Computed example of a mutant assay.
Amino acid sequence: MVPVLALLPAVIALLGAAIVIPWDKTLNTEPFPRNTTATENCGPIDDLQYSRRTVYFPSKGLQLEGWLYLPKGIEGRPPIVVLAHGIAGQKDMGLHPFAEVFAQRGMAALVFDYRNFGGSEGEPRNWVSPKRHLEDWDSALDYVRSTLGAEVDVRRIGLWGTSFAGGHVLVTAAKEGSNISAVISQVPHLSGIEASKKSLKNRGIPQSVRLFLAGLHDRARVLVGLPAAYLKVAGPPGSNSFMELPDEDMHLYLAKHPEHYMGGWQNRILARLANELSRYNPIHYVPEVKAPVLLVATTQDALCPIAVARRAAELNSNVQLLEKDVGHFDVYLGDLFEEVSVAQARFLVEKLGAIVPVHEPAEALPLL
């Protein structure tokens, strides 16, 4: 019988190989440095109805980049809506049209990128983490209150989040209490438990284990000082991507993206998120939210189940549920975007007490 100690070197060698070697062909360990080259869609805007300028503010020692929209044609300081994107999203991926609609109706808007995304500092790039994202939301609110008081009414703050950030705004609002005046939660991630169950059903046990092990591999590499390991954000079924999308959904997902990405974004995120998703359950915070909430959900959502959104609406009388019979990505584009964004603007105007300028809102600019 071989002594256990004699096997130890072989075991250590195997573990070391598992850490160093990307054993799964879907893992990507190539360097992913930040690209600071300006893109054509990141500059200032001086429109007849609003202005937009780039601003910077700190979060945990790094600088976050945001776009500050200020409405024209109103007296006094407007209320402000703070916006951010979902999983692996950044502000140049379809958030400008929403902020524009709000600015056209007398509200200021701050759209920001999380650390490690877009125009914000931080490496490794494309690090999605609920904890880090929530810290960045706190930093954005600190910036609004500490710096923007001369331009906006910091007593009237709204939060707007979509997909992953649809959960972040509910968690943030619950912590902020009466300091937040209104919340928009669009196609929100509400339950990591339910999302994991759905993923397990769609992928099967072997593929689900594969995804989880990829996350452990990424974490192990970091512990020994090796570059991070990435998986695709979105890909076809069976691709071991975080979002496994059929062709139609993939088309809609990419349709809101710009031709050139801020920060050099790529279709990949740190694999370690696979070990965090099931533990992030914003629905647990819904009963604590004091602000009025407009929750926009879609009945054909393959990523964020409609049943969870309905359950969330039942947990708090402040939550108003708006359902649309479409999929997760339909709300960003075309006629449905027009319908949903106007409904959101009306809700925010009412809850924030915004004064709508006398001019009629201009036709929305092309998606950036």
Rank of each mutant, 00 (worst) to 15 (best):
215 G>K: 02
278 S>H: 14
248 E>L: 06
36 T>P: 02
142 D>C: 08
39 T>M: 02
266 Q>T: 04
132 R>L: 15
148 L>S: 10
54 T>V: 15
134 L>H: 13
18 A>V: 01
355 I>E: 08
122 G>I: 01
48 L>Q: 12
144 V>K: 01
75 E>S: 13
273 L>Y: 09
194 E>L: 00
130 P>I: 09
80 I>G: 07
58 P>F: 04
31 P>I: 00
257 H>C: 10
168 H>K: 09
337 F>Y: 07
74 I>W: 12
349 V>M: 12
11 V>A: 11
15 L>N: 09
279 R>L: 15
320 Q>M: 07
267 N>S: 12
15 L>C: 13
77 R>L: 11
193 I>G: 02
350 E>Q: 07
291 A>H: 12
94 G>C: 11
263 G>I: 07
218 D>L: 07
31 P>K: 09
120 S>H: 04
7 L>C: 08
262 M>H: 07
209 V>K: 00
99 A>L: 02
81 V>K: 04
28 N>G: 04
18 A>I: 03
86 G>E: 03
198 K>G: 14
300 Q>C: 10
226 L>G: 06
174 A>E: 09
103 A>S: 00
253 Y>P: 08
139 S>H: 01
354 A>R: 05
89 G>N: 10
12 I>L: 04
144 V>R: 05
140 A>Y: 12
228 A>P: 09
88 A>H: 10
275 N>C: 09
346 R>K: 15
103 A>L: 11
319 V>F: 03
240 N>M: 02
329 F>W: 07
208 S>T: 06
166 G>A: 08
308 V>C: 10
345 A>C: 08
48 L>W: 12
222 V>Y: 07
27 L>I: 11
157 I>F: 13
209 V>D: 00
335 D>C: 01
206 P>D: 05
